[in-house]
Each structure stands twice: as structure tokens, then as C-alpha cells.
């Protein structure tokens, strides 16, 4: 282990990102329990390696990188079926759109969900996402675009 992981500092940085981390994992994996596990594991790894993080300002992309690895591993273990997001919220008018959007999102492929999650919750640019997923950034953008097209069609029905 490192010589001095400052738990308070870590906790403070974690506070800023943990919600987005969960959303990222949840939207990517589609399973709340798996998402929670993935975040947990990512935090453990991050905590242990924290003292080697040279610039604390890069905490966010760094821990998201760890999390995306955890999520991608899990995606590989799933079969290729798309998993519907659990619908936890009551079906209220104000929530209508949210529910429908989540449902449409869940119908995307694993990769499409991952790409959009990295963009939205990880805050990565298409360049960065391209690097992490080893894709050309143009490919990233076009995949995202096609995914959104699909969602749009489903939502406008």
C-alpha cells in the first residue's frame, strides 16, 4: 500500500463524484446492484492507489477511468441482451419523460450506453473516450450520434 493516503482528502474528492459514478455505472450496466458493486470496487482500488495520483485535480477522470474498467469487465460477463433499467420511480406526470428516456436508453447496446455514459457522467470528450475504448474519436462521435437517433425514434413514437 502507499505510504500515506489521506482519507479525509479522498473522502472530499469522492463526495464530488460519487453520484455521477453511480449514474454512470447504473446507466452502463443497467443493474443497480452491479452498479453499486462496480462503484465500490472502483473506490477500493482508487483509495489504495490514491497516493500515487500526482495531480489531485485529475481525480475525476482518473477514478472514472477505473470505474469504466470495472463496468466494461462486467459488460463482458453479461450476455448480449440489453437489460432494462429498473423502473424505481413512480409513474408520475413530471417523471413521465424521465422514465421513458431511461427506458429508451436501456434499449441501446452495451457499447452505446457506455459511450454516452462516458460522455454524460464521466465528462469525457470524444477524444478521451476514443482513447479509453481504443476507438477513433470520429467513431465515438458517430456511434453516439446513431445511438441518439435510435432513442429519438423510440421516444417520438
Amino acid at each position: 500500500m502507499g505510504t500515506g493516503t489521506n482519507p479525509k482528502e479522498f473522502a472530499r474528492l469522492y463526495e464530488d463524484v460519487y453520484r455521477d459514478m453511480y449514474r454512470f455505472a447504473l446507466y452502463t450496466l443497467g443493474h443497480p446492484q452491479d452498479a453499486e458493486d462496480a462503484v465500490s470496487e472502483a473506490v477500493m482500488d482508487a483509495y489504495a492507489g490514491f497516493d500515487r495520483l500526482r495531480q489531485k485535480t485529475s481525480f475525476r477522470p482518473w477514478i472514472f477511468r477505473i470505474l469504466s474498467v470495472k463496468c466494461r469487465r462486467r459488460l463482458k460477463q453479461y450476455t448480449q441482451k440489453t437489460v432494462p433499467l429498473p423502473d424505481e420511480m413512480p409513474d408520475e406526470g413530471s417523471m413521465e419523460e424521465g422514465v421513458q428516456v431511461r427506458h429508451a436508453f436501456s434499449r441501446l447496446t452495451d457499447q452505446e450506453r457506455l459511450i454516452i455514459s462516458m460522455h454524460l457522467f464521466g465528462g469525457y470528450t470524444s477524444q478521451e473516450t476514443g482513447k479509453i475504448l481504443r476507438m477513433n474519436p470520429n467513431t465515438v462521435r458517430s456511434k453516439e450520434s446513431r445511438a441518439l437517433d435510435k432513442m429519438r425514434k423510440w421516444l417520438e413514437k
Binding site: A11, Y14, E15, Y18, R19, M21, Y22, R23, L26, Y27, P32, E36, V39, S40, V43, E88, M89, M95, E97, G98, V99, V101, R102, F105, I116, H119, L120, F121, L148, M151, R152, L155
Partner: peptide, 23 residues
Amino acid sequence: LLDSIRQSAENIPIPDGIAPQAM
């Protein structure tokens, strides 16, 4: 559309197990 996806996530409750205190 992206905004709405983000929005849709806003209100999902975060499990207690991963809140900073618990971690």
C-alpha cells in the same frame, strides 16, 4: 436528448452503501 438523459438520472436515488460516509 443528451440533456434529457442526464436529467433522467438526476432523480435516481444513490444507494447508501456507496455514499461517502459508508465508503
